[in-house]
Amino acid sequence: MPQDVTVAYLGPPASYSHQAALGAFDTEEHTFIPQTTIGDIFTSVQTGATTYGVVPFENSTNGNVVFTLDLFRDRSSGYHVVGETYLTVHHSLVSSASDLTGLTRLYSHPQAFGQCEHWLNSTLKGIERIDVSSTSRAAQLVRDEPGSAAIASAAAAEVNGLKVLARNIEDTPDNTTRFFVLQAAEMRSPMSEEGGKGDKTFVAFSVDHAQPGALADGLKVFKNFGLNLTSIASRPDRKTRWNYVFFVEFEGHEDTQNVKDALEELGTFCAEMRVLGSYVDRQKLAKKPAAAS
């Protein structure tokens, strides 16, 4: 495979997004390109500047990454979700200081703050928190700023020559982030070997809020067609106050007949609907027994 097969991730290097991208793609066959924001990752895929993009979607402790959901809502074309990957996230408090004494500012991504609330409230309560674009960017910023610290990975500390003042400060030891893999709109993930049973599909839709029970009727479609929901979230649609876009993930591939039929019926209850992609269920794949040799 040529070296121009590129993967965009939320940088700088050593971010959790970088680690997720390295875990999802062969490092010898792909070139990894850092982006400043999650929006830049979408743009790089939509414009063809990169072949793939890896974006954080949800965390087991702190829920959905709203920045990503908003981009799925606002960017209506030019990409397709073709995969998912999971990363166990262990946060560290990193700094150029030798201990916690005298720390006045704390930098990190908002998701990282949310994943470390218990530790922060018990150990660094009252210290100013400053949101930045990524945890690795936070580590960069504190490198030359006395009195500051960052929540980042131990890898980011090593890259930036920082000390690790505390390890594993996340609220839950199994703290895991799920990432989506994006590719250009004309590319779609093929069905798994199990005829779609090992796949998931991600859709976005809105309903007529003036129609009583429209959302309930739409969600009932999945039950009627035997499609198990694995995730549901919502964001304001930014067109009408108190109207929402719903994001639903379910088991099955968009190319199977029962999913096609279900989506056709779902469309009758929707003001708008978009299929954002189908991809292999990595959790289900990980649980499959290894083939006998």
Results as ranks from 00 to 15, higher is better:
G114T: 00
P12Y: 07
G11A: 11
Y86A: 12
L266I: 09
E265A: 08
F180S: 01
S92E: 06
A8K: 03
K287I: 01
N224I: 08
L10I: 12
F25C: 09
L229D: 10
R241I: 08
L276F: 13
I151M: 05
K260Q: 13
H18V: 04
G53R: 02
T88L: 05
W119C: 09
A154S: 06
Y52H: 08
L71M: 15
N64E: 00
L10N: 04
T36H: 08
T101L: 10
F67N: 02
T256W: 01
D40Q: 14
G23M: 12
I33E: 13
T177P: 02
H253K: 00
A149D: 03
A152H: 07
E29Q: 03
T201P: 15
V82H: 01
S92K: 08
T51F: 04
R241S: 15
S136T: 07
Y9S: 09
A139V: 03
F269S: 01
V207A: 01
K288F: 11
L165K: 02
T43L: 13
P12C: 10
A138C: 09
K288Y: 14
A210T: 14
R235M: 13
S98H: 13
G267L: 02
V142H: 04
T85P: 07
G226A: 09
I127D: 10
S278C: 05
G23W: 10
S134G: 01
K288H: 12
F25L: 12
G213W: 11
A166E: 09
V221Y: 14
T101D: 12
G267K: 01
E193L: 14
T31M: 06
P2S: 15
K197C: 11
F25H: 09
T68M: 08
G23F: 06
R282V: 15
I33P: 12
S293L: 12
V65D: 04
D144T: 11
L219K: 07
L229A: 13
S17K: 03
T6N: 06
I38Q: 04
F247M: 10
Q115H: 01
R167K: 12
V81D: 05
I127F: 04
S96P: 05
D255Y: 11
I38M: 08
K163I: 07
G78Q: 02
K287E: 10
S60I: 10
G114S: 05
K223N: 00
N64G: 00
G147K: 13
A262V: 13
G196T: 02
D26I: 03
L120V: 06
A155K: 15
R274V: 05
T36N: 06
H109F: 13
E265W: 08
R241F: 15
